[in-house]
Design a protein around this nucleic acid. Structure first.
Lengths: 348, 348
DNA sequence: CTTGACACAGTAAACGTTTTCCGATAAAGT
DNA sequence: ACTTTATCGGAAAACGTTTACTGTGTCAAG
């Protein structure tokens, strides 16, 4: 591997000059010398030794990315968004999945600091804010798709209020007035956000909500089934059910069908997350898709801003999702196909 | 951040000695000094500067992991397997998803070499062997879950022959003699492997195969549907269909049902890959699961062996999968539940 | 003609390790 | 008692950068 020294020797200049040209510093260098050096560097295939550079500058062009669950339906897409931006800016990511029964987040952060990462990204994972700042050695950080309640201004999260309003307004527009709701596990941030927005939008539209129209599940198909059964036994039968994710929605779908009713004729159903289940069920389920790739990009851009300026002004950033209209709500269908070519899509 | 120098100063020894103790070299150091140094290092929270170490030793404790498709159903699990082993041995991974319409593999490899990665892992991706060795600067490498035909002794791949035999023998044991087959896209390595093993096992068992029992699809649900229709129109109607993946199997399932037949009573169906689709369909589909986590682990262990010894003796390594018996083949069912709690499982 | 100011290039120190070489002490063999 | 050998510790060089400092030469303003 060629070094500065060799390039300098061939070009007949000092290594300082070569360094200044090749690390695009703004130190003045005459056009001829610059030209000559660039040519030599190209010829010998010079590539800077990151270790040496890192040792000297105390920056590594490495960014630590920490997650709990690599195999979540969201994480890989978010990471692609992050890398899309960071790689273009010359950064590499140290992606680590922490099975938190095995390693502590703190240990991993320590190890990463040993590699002198410039910043951190937490994906769908969480650590008490009070400790975080010092734990990270005051490096910039960002949390993307924070799942839990603990608030943090460095978060990039879906705009659940907007999304919920999207869903409820869509149903209202289709003429539904009696809309029930199946909430998710209350430990999760998005769960209460989605529920709150449902309540707010309904009230803002001037519609009453029956107490027995609201059930709370734990995200699973099974609990969606159980919740829907409770809702179907309500004093006033609703004409639509909004579920806080596609698993619950699919469970509700099964329950409604098992009760001898039809979807969407008798009861409309809407889910969340655009999980594969929602495009493969029969009927397919109208749902809200989260802009995961975009969230990753935004997170990375935020991080870059923190790295470039020392401006650490920060506010939670909300990214709106999109409604995907399918069969389960009775509206004219969007462009989505019945059984999406799942494997085809993932293999291309 | 504490340095060797500080530790040395406090412990009252030279940095050379501290280095020898802290980088567990086998250079003789008296127990007392060792003890003292370790204590001081612990107290000040010493953590070695990887950049400096890397500059000196020309190793980085970094391993480059390159993939095409982060969001494939296999990749995240494989990566977790890889990291499980590598992280325990003090390595970090530089995971990069290459959208190959955007960047060239060669560029990414170059960038990684700039960070002086010690070795490479290619996940489900491919590059001509002839160029590879020099492109990688003679660093060790390993390919895990190679999808294409181009053979390479450094590959860790599923033992498709074993898996196919598993499936066919299972059906033969259930009394099926007329077994049809839907193959996948012939560009893919596993496709031909699975087909070959089907043919071999059938012949070895002494059963004839009708030409119109074999159809070729492209992995998609749609093509599974079409292939099954062709097979159902065969001169001699088969009693079972083996499909090269779960998408094809699901398509076949739909076709059989649409033809007014029942699964498994009239036709048994078996798929591959234990995709979510196979556990959510009705009936659920018997399938073969690939040991992805294990494959990642094996790959990482191979890499470590290459790094430690300079022994580059290498042979393709085949990892056998497992049969998951579900409803679609008519056998007494395994422990798998009907609609697996998909989201629950991914969120925990 | 002086005096800055500026553009450009080079010298050398520093970053934190590892490791070679060398010296000192002690134990063991003659 | 003298060599040999093993054990332990230190001094110092090196890895490839970046950058503060210094030193030229040129040019414009006074």
């Amino acid at each position: 591997m060629a070094t500065l020294k060799e390039v300098a020797h061939i070009a007949g200049v000092s290594i300082a000059t070569v360094s200044r040209v090749l690390s695009n510093s703004d130190y003045p260098v005459s056009p001829q010398t610059r030209e000559a050096i660039l040519k030599v560097a190209e010829d010998v295939g010079y590539s800077p030794n990151r270790a040496a550079r890192s040792l000297r500058t105390e920056r590594s062009s490495l960014i630590g990315v920490i997650l709990d669950n690599f195999s979540s339906q969201w994480a890989p897409i978010i990471i692609r968004g992050i890398q899309d931006v960071l790689h273009n800016s010359g950064y590499f990511t140290l992606v680590v999945n922490i099975p938190w029964e095995k390693y502590s987040q703190t240990d991993v952060v320590q190890d990463m600091l040993g590699h002198s990462v410039d910043a951190f990204v937490f994906v769908e994972t969480w650590h008490p804010v009070s400790e975080r700042r010092e734990m990270l050695n005051n490096r910039p950080y960002v949390i993307v798709h924070r799942l839990f309640h603990q608030s943090d201004p460095h978060s990039i999260i879906p705009d659940e209020a907007h999304n919920s309003a999207l869903v409820v307004k869509h149903l209202l527009k289709l003429g539904h007035k009696k809309i029930a709701y199946i909430a998710g596990d209350s430990d999760y941030f998005s769960s209460s956000q989605r529920l709150d927005a449902y309540l707010y939008t309904m009230r803002a539209a001037g519609f009453a909500i029956q107490a027995d129209w609201i059930a709370r599940g734990d995200w699973s198909i099974r609990s969606g089934y159980a919740c829907a059964q409770r809702i179907l036994a309500a004093d006033i039968m609703p004409s639509a059910i909004v579920a806080a994710n596609d698993g619950l929605a699919y469970g509700a779908l099964l329950a409604v069908i098992d009760a001898g009713l039809s979807v969407p004729a008798d009861i409309a159903i809407v889910g969340y997350d655009n999980n594969d289940i929602s495009s493969m069920s029969n009927p397919t389920i109208t749902t809200v898709t989260l802009p995961l790739f975009l969230m990753g990009q935004v997170a990375a851009e935020n991080l870059l801003r923190q790295l470039q300026t020392d401006d650490c002004e920060f506010a939670e950033q909300l990214i709106p999702g999109q409604l995907i209209v399918r069969q389960s709500c009775g509206a004219p269908e969007g462009k989505d196909v019945y059984a999406r070519d799942y494997l085809r899509a993932t293999m291309e």
